[in-house]
């Protein structure tokens, strides 16, 4: 049963990934991408990585995609379509993709994967204590670094948003 679910999800992901890069309408590409991301979340659910799956849904599907849609909404008119690339570029891209796919497939098939019986699901409490642990295998440093990075991004965003107003004081015309 799980095999069937896995293959159907995988098929959905592959189909929509191809659709996403070939669609000429930008918002449609985004929606296809959303399906791919949801498929990834589905696979996480399948292997009982519930937390990661929920994070995948919240951050990628709910956050990033909404932001992309939002920016598309702001700049994109409904009748606009992306141009078709030149034939030479198309061929170049296809070759590059094929090479990438080849490398991935050879790596995957040359490696021996062992099937591990998943005995217990990771709970949020485990992940939380791992994130805050400073012992071996703890993630306190990357966790804190990322929070500093996010803070910096936030301050930057505020400054960009406020920028017009700050200069507006000197410039009467605004």
């Amino acid at each position: 049963m799980e095999r069937i679910i896995f293959y159907s999800i995988a098929l959905i992901m592959v189909v929509f990934a191809i659709a996403s890069v070939t669609s000429r309408k930008m918002l449609r590409s985004v929606i296809y991408l959303l399906f791919v991301l949801c498929g990834v979340a589905g696979i996480y659910f399948l292997i009982d990585y519930n937390f990661l799956a929920a994070i995948q849904l919240t951050v990628y599907a709910g956050g990033i995609i909404v932001l992309i849609i939002f920016s598309v909404l702001l700049v994109h008119h409904i009748e606009m379509q992306l141009e078709i690339a030149k034939l030479s570029r198309q061929i170049l891209t296809a070759v590059a993709c094929m090479v990438g796919l080849g490398i991935f497939l050879t790596t995957i098939y040359s490696h021996e994967f062992n099937v591990v019986e998943n005995s217990r699901t990771t709970t949020t409490a485990d992940i939380g204590s791992k994130l805050l642990s400073y012992e071996a295998g703890g993630f306190i440093l990357p966790f804190e670094v990322i929070s500093v990075l996010l803070l910096a991004a936030m301050i930057g965003a505020i400054i960009i948003a406020k920028g017009a107003k700050l200069t507006g004081k000197n410039d009467k015309a605004l």
Partner: peptide, 14 residues
């Protein structure tokens, strides 16, 4: 699911 609340928040964001 063991992350029920998080799941609800994730779904509602979609």
């Amino acid at each position: 699911i063991n992350i029920g609340i998080l799941f609800l928040i994730a779904i509602s964001s979609i």
